[in-house]
Design a protein around this nucleic acid. Structure first.
Length: 287
DNA sequence: CTTATGACCTGCAAGC
DNA sequence: TGCTTGCAGGTCATAA
């Protein structure tokens, strides 16, 4: 599941349910789910066996579990991935891709993913700028919930970019964790159209949109994350409720909560952007 | 180096 | 009732 709050919900569940448990066996039911693990399924399975899961961690939308003897089990949920803790006798999910059984015979960890954009891998951990991260996560910027997140540095990096503010918000090498929903929400709160060029934002405005992104993600986390359907659930299969608190995302034709103007949907990168045409006017000279 | 554009998948809802 | 089209929370390799 997609954005930072949903991934954090999963991280907490993982930490609670798998930390301290030792892997007994792994079953890869769909090779694409471990495509980022270059040595392949046999290697993935054999190297995970007998390892103990130590702690669940996260940066942005990436999630991993530190393993005894070093290395980490890295996960990205892509668009439709789920990590579920299920009783061993529960029937297999339709899109079950990887199963991890534990030596204690308790509930197993399952990676379920309809669209297979997500996946698992074993990765070595490296130190980057004072943080210990799996190698494939080394290029991902700190997210706003990271205690070492530096707002001034993020503002500077954003204003250095020659692109539009929404693209910048979605760029995981500038600030991580923000996806299509929370980008639109942060822009609405900041009264900015997503096509505004970052280079022309004042320092204060850039800081404001980042602060709003952080704020809206915190609020969503407090509601257990955002979900419109059964695809976005925690490890126990439960959905969050933040979709009821969204101001613009998915609200096409509904009145803006500030001015009453109908929210519009515009195509953006093979997806959609939602905004209030009055509170968030398009920059001039942009199609 | 930076920035923009598809490609990668499956399933659902809407429209004809 | 089918069929087709569009759309979905993301990231990455590639090209300019």
């Amino acid at each position: 599941m997609p954005e930072l709050p949903e991934v954090e919900v999963v991280r907490r569940g993982l930490h609670e349910h798998v930390a301290g448990r030792t892997v007994a066996g792994v079953e890869v039911l769909h090779d694409r789910a471990i495509r980022r693990h270059l040595p392949g399924a046999a290697d993935f399975t054999s190297r995970l066996a007998d390892r103990t899961m130590v702690a669940a961690r996260r940066r942005g939308k990436y999630l991993w579990v530190d393993l005894s003897d070093g290395d980490a089990l890295l996960a990205h949920l892509g668009m439709s991935g789920q990590l579920l803790v299920q009783p061993a006798d529960a029937p297999d999910e339709k899109h079950l891709r990887v199963r991890v059984r534990f030596a204690d015979g308790g509930p197993e960890l399952r990676f379920v993913d309809q669209r297979t954009f997500g996946g698992l891998a074993l990765a070595e951990v490296v130190e980057v700028d004072g943080a210990v991260l799996p190698l494939p996560v080394a290029h991902i910027a700190r997210d706003p919930m990271d205690p070492a997140f530096d707002p001034d540095a993020a503002v500077a990096a954003m204003r250095r970019r020659r692109t539009d503010v929404k693209r910048a918000l979605l760029d995981q090498t500038l600030v991580s964790g923000v996806g299509n929903i929370y980008a639109d929400e942060a822009l609405w709160r900041s009264r900015l159209h997503g096509l505004r060029p970052t280079a022309k934002l004042t320092r204060a405005k850039a800081a404001e949109v980042l602060a709003h992104a952080s704020q809206v993600m915190h609020e969503a986390l407090g509601e257990g994350g955002t979900s419109f359907d059964a695809l976005y659930v925690n490890v126990n299969g439960q959905s969050g409720y933040f979709d009821r608190s969204l101001d613009v995302y998915g609200q096409e034709n509904r009145p803006c909560g500030r001015c009453g103007t109908a929210i519009v949907r515009e195509p953006f990168m093979n997806r959609s952007s939602f905004s209030c045409p009055r509170c968030q006017p398009r920059p001039r000279g942009v199609a």
